[in-house]
Computed example of a mutant assay.
Amino acid sequence: MTVQDSGKVALITGASRGIGYGIAEAFVARGDRVAITGRNEDALREAVERLGSDRAIGIAGKAHDEAHQATAVEQVMAAFGRVDHLVNNAGTNPVFGPMADLDLDVARKVYETNVISALGFAQRTWKAWQRENGGAIVNISSVAGVAPSPFIGAYGMSKAAMINLTAQLAHEFAPVVRVNAIAPAVVRTKFAEALYEGREAEAAAVYPLGRLGLPEDIGGAAAFLTSAQSDWITGQTLVVDGGIFLNAGVG
Protein backbone atom coordinates (compact mmCIF):
# COMPACT_ATOMS: atom_id res chain seq x y z
CA MET A 1 0.00 0.00 0.00
CA THR A 2 1.38 3.42 -0.95
CA VAL A 3 1.46 5.94 1.89
CA GLN A 4 0.82 9.57 1.02
CA ASP A 5 3.71 11.86 1.90
CA SER A 6 2.77 13.96 4.93
CA GLY A 7 5.33 16.64 4.08
CA LYS A 8 6.63 16.39 7.67
CA VAL A 9 10.12 15.47 8.82
CA ALA A 10 11.23 14.04 12.16
CA LEU A 11 14.61 13.74 13.84
CA ILE A 12 14.65 10.77 16.22
CA THR A 13 17.68 10.13 18.42
CA GLY A 14 18.79 6.65 19.42
CA ALA A 15 16.61 5.05 16.78
CA SER A 16 18.57 2.23 15.17
CA ARG A 17 16.60 -0.27 17.28
CA GLY A 18 14.14 -0.59 20.16
CA ILE A 19 11.79 2.23 21.10
CA GLY A 20 13.43 4.75 18.79
CA TYR A 21 13.09 2.44 15.81
CA GLY A 22 9.46 1.72 16.73
CA ILE A 23 8.78 5.45 16.68
CA ALA A 24 10.55 5.85 13.33
CA GLU A 25 8.42 3.03 11.89
CA ALA A 26 5.22 4.72 13.08
CA PHE A 27 6.24 8.04 11.57
CA VAL A 28 7.23 6.53 8.22
CA ALA A 29 3.97 4.57 8.13
CA ARG A 30 1.98 7.81 8.29
CA GLY A 31 4.03 9.44 5.53
CA ASP A 32 6.78 11.30 7.39
CA ARG A 33 10.41 11.28 6.41
CA VAL A 34 12.82 10.60 9.25
CA ALA A 35 16.42 11.15 10.25
CA ILE A 36 17.56 8.65 12.86
CA THR A 37 20.68 8.75 14.99
CA GLY A 38 22.67 6.07 16.77
CA ARG A 39 26.18 5.13 17.78
CA ASN A 40 26.61 2.11 15.49
CA GLU A 41 26.91 2.87 11.78
CA ASP A 42 26.11 -0.69 10.69
CA ALA A 43 22.96 -0.84 12.83
CA LEU A 44 21.90 2.55 11.49
CA ARG A 45 22.44 1.45 7.90
CA GLU A 46 20.30 -1.65 8.45
CA ALA A 47 17.57 0.40 10.11
CA VAL A 48 17.49 2.87 7.20
CA GLU A 49 17.20 -0.02 4.75
CA ARG A 50 14.22 -1.43 6.67
CA LEU A 51 12.54 1.97 6.90
CA GLY A 52 13.25 2.73 3.25
CA SER A 53 16.20 4.72 1.99
CA ASP A 54 13.76 7.04 0.22
CA ARG A 55 12.12 7.86 3.57
CA ALA A 56 15.00 7.79 6.03
CA ILE A 57 18.60 8.81 6.60
CA GLY A 58 20.96 7.73 9.37
CA ILE A 59 23.40 9.96 11.23
CA ALA A 60 25.98 8.22 13.42
CA GLY A 61 27.29 9.73 16.63
CA LYS A 62 27.01 9.96 20.40
CA ALA A 63 23.97 11.88 21.62
CA HIS A 64 25.89 13.85 24.26
CA ASP A 65 28.50 15.03 21.74
CA GLU A 66 27.66 18.63 20.85
CA ALA A 67 29.42 18.34 17.50
CA HIS A 68 27.19 15.36 16.66
CA GLN A 69 24.09 17.31 17.70
CA ALA A 70 25.05 20.14 15.37
CA THR A 71 25.89 17.76 12.52
CA ALA A 72 22.62 15.85 12.93
CA VAL A 73 20.47 18.96 12.67
CA GLU A 74 22.54 20.31 9.79
CA GLN A 75 22.23 17.02 7.88
CA VAL A 76 18.48 16.68 8.34
CA MET A 77 18.03 20.26 7.16
CA ALA A 78 20.31 19.63 4.17
CA ALA A 79 18.53 16.39 3.26
CA PHE A 80 14.92 17.43 3.84
CA GLY A 81 14.87 21.21 4.31
CA ARG A 82 12.91 21.10 7.57
CA VAL A 83 12.62 19.36 10.94
CA ASP A 84 9.04 19.46 12.20
CA HIS A 85 9.35 16.92 14.97
CA LEU A 86 12.12 16.04 17.41
CA VAL A 87 12.03 12.85 19.47
CA ASN A 88 14.67 12.71 22.20
CA ASN A 89 14.96 8.97 22.73
CA ALA A 90 18.71 8.37 23.11
CA GLY A 91 19.59 7.26 26.61
CA THR A 92 21.91 5.21 28.77
CA ASN A 93 21.68 3.21 31.97
CA PRO A 94 25.15 1.78 32.68
CA VAL A 95 24.78 1.12 36.39
CA PHE A 96 22.65 -1.13 38.62
CA GLY A 97 22.80 -0.70 42.38
CA PRO A 98 21.89 1.48 45.36
CA MET A 99 22.21 5.26 45.18
CA ALA A 100 24.36 5.22 48.32
CA ASP A 101 27.14 3.52 46.35
CA LEU A 102 26.64 5.35 43.06
CA ASP A 103 29.84 6.56 41.40
CA LEU A 104 29.27 10.27 40.87
CA ASP A 105 31.12 10.22 37.56
CA VAL A 106 28.65 7.60 36.35
CA ALA A 107 25.77 9.78 37.55
CA ARG A 108 27.18 12.67 35.55
CA LYS A 109 27.46 10.48 32.44
CA VAL A 110 23.84 9.34 32.76
CA TYR A 111 22.62 12.91 33.21
CA GLU A 112 24.74 14.20 30.33
CA THR A 113 23.46 11.57 27.91
CA ASN A 114 19.82 11.44 29.00
CA VAL A 115 19.09 15.07 29.82
CA ILE A 116 21.68 17.53 28.55
CA SER A 117 21.68 15.92 25.10
CA ALA A 118 17.89 16.29 24.91
CA LEU A 119 18.21 19.98 25.72
CA GLY A 120 20.98 20.37 23.15
CA PHE A 121 18.92 18.79 20.37
CA ALA A 122 15.88 20.86 21.36
CA GLN A 123 17.89 24.08 21.22
CA ARG A 124 19.24 23.24 17.79
CA THR A 125 15.97 22.16 16.17
CA TRP A 126 14.28 25.23 17.66
CA LYS A 127 16.82 27.55 16.07
CA ALA A 128 17.10 25.67 12.77
CA TRP A 129 13.38 25.38 11.98
CA GLN A 130 10.80 25.19 14.73
CA ARG A 131 11.02 28.74 16.09
CA GLU A 132 9.83 30.16 12.77
CA ASN A 133 7.73 27.25 11.52
CA GLY A 134 6.36 25.37 14.52
CA GLY A 135 6.43 21.68 15.31
CA ALA A 136 6.48 19.27 18.21
CA ILE A 137 9.01 17.70 20.56
CA VAL A 138 8.58 14.39 22.37
CA ASN A 139 10.97 13.42 25.15
CA ILE A 140 11.14 9.74 26.05
CA SER A 141 11.19 9.59 29.83
CA SER A 142 10.27 6.51 31.90
CA VAL A 143 8.05 5.38 34.76
CA ALA A 144 11.37 5.37 36.63
CA GLY A 145 11.11 9.15 36.49
CA VAL A 146 7.74 9.34 38.24
CA ALA A 147 8.26 6.85 41.09
CA PRO A 148 11.18 5.35 43.04
CA SER A 149 13.05 2.78 40.98
CA PRO A 150 15.22 0.51 43.13
CA PHE A 151 18.71 -0.14 41.76
CA ILE A 152 18.28 2.12 38.70
CA GLY A 153 18.13 5.34 40.68
CA ALA A 154 20.55 7.28 38.48
CA TYR A 155 18.45 6.46 35.44
CA GLY A 156 15.25 7.39 37.28
CA MET A 157 16.75 10.66 38.47
CA SER A 158 17.66 11.60 34.89
CA LYS A 159 14.22 10.64 33.58
CA ALA A 160 12.56 12.79 36.25
CA ALA A 161 14.72 15.65 35.02
CA MET A 162 13.48 14.99 31.47
CA ILE A 163 9.90 15.40 32.67
CA ASN A 164 10.76 18.78 34.18
CA LEU A 165 12.71 19.73 31.04
CA THR A 166 9.57 18.92 29.06
CA ALA A 167 7.52 21.36 31.14
CA GLN A 168 10.18 24.06 30.94
CA LEU A 169 10.48 23.82 27.15
CA ALA A 170 6.71 23.59 26.70
CA HIS A 171 6.29 26.86 28.57
CA GLU A 172 9.13 28.61 26.74
CA PHE A 173 8.40 27.32 23.21
CA ALA A 174 4.63 27.93 23.30
CA PRO A 175 2.62 28.68 21.29
CA VAL A 176 4.59 27.60 18.22
CA VAL A 177 6.05 24.30 19.45
CA ARG A 178 4.35 21.73 21.64
CA VAL A 179 6.57 19.70 23.97
CA ASN A 180 5.42 16.50 25.68
CA ALA A 181 6.97 13.41 27.21
CA ILE A 182 6.22 9.69 27.23
CA ALA A 183 6.99 7.61 30.31
CA PRO A 184 7.02 3.92 29.35
CA ALA A 185 7.18 1.01 31.74
CA VAL A 186 9.29 -2.00 30.72
CA VAL A 187 9.36 -2.32 26.94
CA ARG A 188 10.66 -5.49 25.34
CA THR A 189 13.94 -4.18 23.93
CA LYS A 190 17.63 -5.02 24.17
CA PHE A 191 18.09 -1.90 26.32
CA ALA A 192 15.71 -3.27 28.98
CA GLU A 193 16.73 -6.95 28.78
CA ALA A 194 18.19 -7.01 32.27
CA LEU A 195 14.73 -6.29 33.68
CA TYR A 196 13.05 -9.35 32.16
CA GLU A 197 15.59 -11.69 30.52
CA GLY A 198 14.99 -15.29 31.49
CA ARG A 199 11.79 -14.47 33.36
CA GLU A 200 9.62 -12.62 30.88
CA ALA A 201 6.40 -14.43 31.82
CA GLU A 202 6.96 -13.59 35.47
CA ALA A 203 7.79 -9.97 34.68
CA ALA A 204 4.73 -9.62 32.46
CA ALA A 205 2.38 -11.21 35.00
CA VAL A 206 2.38 -8.13 37.23
CA TYR A 207 0.99 -5.95 34.44
CA PRO A 208 -2.82 -5.69 34.42
CA LEU A 209 -2.72 -5.85 30.61
CA GLY A 210 -0.75 -9.10 30.83
CA ARG A 211 2.36 -8.29 28.79
CA LEU A 212 5.43 -6.13 28.55
CA GLY A 213 5.40 -3.13 26.27
CA LEU A 214 6.48 -3.28 22.65
CA PRO A 215 8.29 -0.58 20.66
CA GLU A 216 5.18 -0.05 18.54
CA ASP A 217 3.20 0.84 21.68
CA ILE A 218 5.49 3.81 22.19
CA GLY A 219 5.54 4.52 18.47
CA GLY A 220 1.77 4.95 18.51
CA ALA A 221 1.94 7.31 21.47
CA ALA A 222 4.66 9.41 19.83
CA ALA A 223 2.71 9.54 16.57
CA PHE A 224 -0.31 10.86 18.48
CA LEU A 225 1.70 13.51 20.33
CA THR A 226 3.12 14.81 17.05
CA SER A 227 -0.22 14.83 15.23
CA ALA A 228 -3.01 17.35 14.79
CA GLN A 229 -5.13 15.25 17.16
CA SER A 230 -2.96 16.45 20.05
CA ASP A 231 -2.81 20.12 19.05
CA TRP A 232 -4.11 21.27 22.46
CA ILE A 233 -1.70 19.15 24.51
CA THR A 234 1.63 20.48 25.73
CA GLY A 235 3.80 20.14 28.81
CA GLN A 236 2.32 16.74 29.64
CA THR A 237 3.82 13.35 30.40
CA LEU A 238 1.88 10.40 28.98
CA VAL A 239 2.44 7.27 31.06
CA VAL A 240 2.36 4.16 28.86
CA ASP A 241 2.66 1.36 31.40
CA GLY A 242 0.30 -1.52 30.67
CA GLY A 243 -1.57 -0.55 33.81
CA ILE A 244 1.32 -1.24 36.21
CA PHE A 245 0.60 1.86 38.31
CA LEU A 246 -2.86 0.49 39.04
CA ASN A 247 -1.11 -1.96 41.36
CA ALA A 248 0.02 0.89 43.60
CA GLY A 249 -3.32 0.85 45.36
CA VAL A 250 -3.34 -2.91 45.88
CA GLY A 251 -2.47 -4.45 49.24
Rank of each mutant, 00 (worst) to 15 (best):
T2K: 09
G7Q: 06
A10T: 07
A15S: 09
S16M: 00
S16I: 07
G18D: 07
G18N: 02
G18Y: 08
I19P: 05
G20T: 12
G22V: 05
I23S: 00
I23H: 05
A24C: 10
A26T: 14
F27E: 08
V28K: 08
V28I: 14
A29R: 09
A29V: 07
R30Y: 08
R33V: 13
A35Q: 13
R39A: 05
N40S: 12
N40G: 02
E41P: 11
D42F: 00
A43D: 13
E49Y: 05
E49I: 12
R50G: 11
L51S: 11
G52E: 08
A56E: 06
A56W: 14
I59Q: 10
K62T: 09
A63D: 14
H64E: 14
E66S: 03
A67H: 08
H68A: 12
A70I: 15
T71E: 13
V73W: 10
E74M: 01
Q75E: 15
A79M: 01
F80R: 07
F80A: 08
R82V: 04
V83P: 07
D84L: 03
D84N: 15
H85G: 00
H85S: 01
N88K: 04
N89E: 14
N89W: 10
G91D: 14
G91M: 15
P94K: 09
P94N: 09
G97R: 03
P98H: 07
D101G: 09
D103C: 00
A107L: 15
Y111S: 01
Y111A: 01
N114A: 04
V115S: 11
A118E: 13
R124G: 03
R124L: 15
T125M: 01
Q130G: 08
E132C: 09
E132T: 12
I137Q: 02
I140N: 10
I140F: 10
A144T: 10
G145S: 04
S149E: 04
P150T: 11
I152L: 05
G153I: 08
G153V: 14
A154N: 14
A161R: 11
N164G: 00
L165R: 06
T166P: 00
L169N: 05
E172F: 04
A174S: 13
P175W: 02
P175F: 13
P175H: 09
V176W: 13
V177C: 09
R178S: 02
N180V: 02
N180I: 07
I182A: 09
I182N: 06
P184M: 00
V186E: 05
V186F: 06
V186Y: 06
V187S: 10
K190N: 11
F191L: 10
E193G: 00
E193T: 00
L195W: 13
E197V: 05
E197Y: 06
E197N: 03
G198Q: 00
R199I: 00
A203H: 09
A205L: 11
A205Y: 06
Y207W: 03
P208C: 01
R211G: 00
P215Y: 06
P215V: 14
P215N: 11
D217P: 04
D217F: 02
G219L: 02
G220E: 15
A221H: 04
A228K: 13
W232Y: 15
T234P: 02
Q236E: 14
Q236D: 07
L238C: 04
D241M: 03
D241V: 09
G243D: 05
I244E: 01
F245T: 15
V250W: 12
V250M: 15
G251S: 07
